[in-house]
Design a protein around this nucleic acid. Structure first.
Lengths: 196, 196
DNA sequence: ACCTGAACACCGTTCAAGT
DNA sequence: ACCTGAACACCGTTCAAGT
């Protein structure tokens, strides 16, 4: 609060005229991010070419927002949701409604739509949180080391990690996201046809 | 620090004899949780009936630890990792080494093993973080409401959410975890056979 | 070797007082 | 209506001093 006050050229105490407290302010930040997803033209674009197309565009939209705000996304992902049916990062009644409608219009049963919503949010959370945290890490890999050690000797007990450390450090987040998303959509399609 | 001191019947300042600071203390907590995974007999059990059996047991072991420590697991999931090749929640050189060895012994190529490690961690992170945070939420669904409103009127603009809110609130985390894990193993098997 | 007291530089928040 | 000063109850951390 004090820092934000400074940033606005005002004393911290003035903020309490406009906002009940720190927690509500953080909630508002999260809400702003969620709104940003809602305004993405790539996601909202009216002609939906099937539910797969819709979920593809939604997933990519959420990913863009996450990458645009790497510092804030963990908040979107982990603030306690307002209700049990709001799962991060799709923690918004409008999104859940749109999501369910879109799938039901294409013949999903109630249970299939709900289970797709669950699988979809788990997927987004895992991939985007990991991607975003890797971004924020900007960790010189030297942080692991004790004072005298170098990387090779400290990795000596772990030959495979040492041998593959280049491969392990590569960033394949974009293609991984794509492939896992593809796979998720296939799984959802399967559940759809099972229960319909 | 002050609260922990109280808990130990000592002044906060005494803690600095034993620990460099707050951050290192949190790191130690995370390390303790990771060690707990290592000691789970269900996971370590020597006769491994193939890599699928190993990954199944590992996933369930991590899940057990996460559910045993719902308050601490978010820390395991989101503390900045020590190196780019340590992905939460499997953020431990010993685990990565074991993981890679196990898969290579069963004919995985280097790339297939690394990509399996990535997919596996994303999966665990998404599912367990969501499950654990739903646990900690214990949210009376009334928190969403303004003072005068009741649930039905506040959900009125979202008919599908309203209609399906019972289904949306049900907890299916256990079966979802199982099914998604199954699906993940199938995908990993596919990648394995493609690149070998 | 281990602990303590006093102190420093921070927080978020309340409230009476200013314009 | 909006902002401020002083104050309160907290933090983590340093350091000289105690046993």
């Amino acid at each position: 609060m004090r820092r934000l006050g400074d940033l606005l050229g005002v004393e911290a105490m003035s903020l309490y005229r406009h906002v009940p407290g720190r927690e509500d302010l953080l909630d508002a930040v999260v809400a702003a991010i969620v709104d940003e997803m809602q305004e993405d033209p790539e996601v909202i674009e009216s002609p939906r070419d099937g539910w797969q197309d819709f979920l593809q565009r939604l997933a990519h939209g959420v990913r863009r927002v996450a990458l645009r705000h790497p510092k804030v996304f963990p908040l979107v992902a982990s603030r306690p949701p307002e209700a049990p049916w709001l799962r991060p990062p799709l923690r918004d009644l409008r999104w859940v409604e749109t999501f369910l409608e879109a799938l039901q219009q294409e013949g999903f049963s109630d249970e299939a739509a709900v289970s797709a919503y669950r699988a979809f949010t788990s997927f987004l959370l895992g991939h985007l949180l990991l991607e975003v945290s890797a971004l924020g890490a900007d960790v010189g890999p030297l942080d692991v080391l004790e004072d005298g050690q170098d990387l090779d000797t400290s990795l000596a007990p772990y030959p495979e990690v040492g041998r593959l450390r280049a491969a392990l450090s590569e960033d394949h987040s974009a293609v991984e996201f794509e492939e896992a998303l593809e796979e998720l959509l296939n799984r959802i399609a399967l559940v759809r046809s099972e229960t319909s």
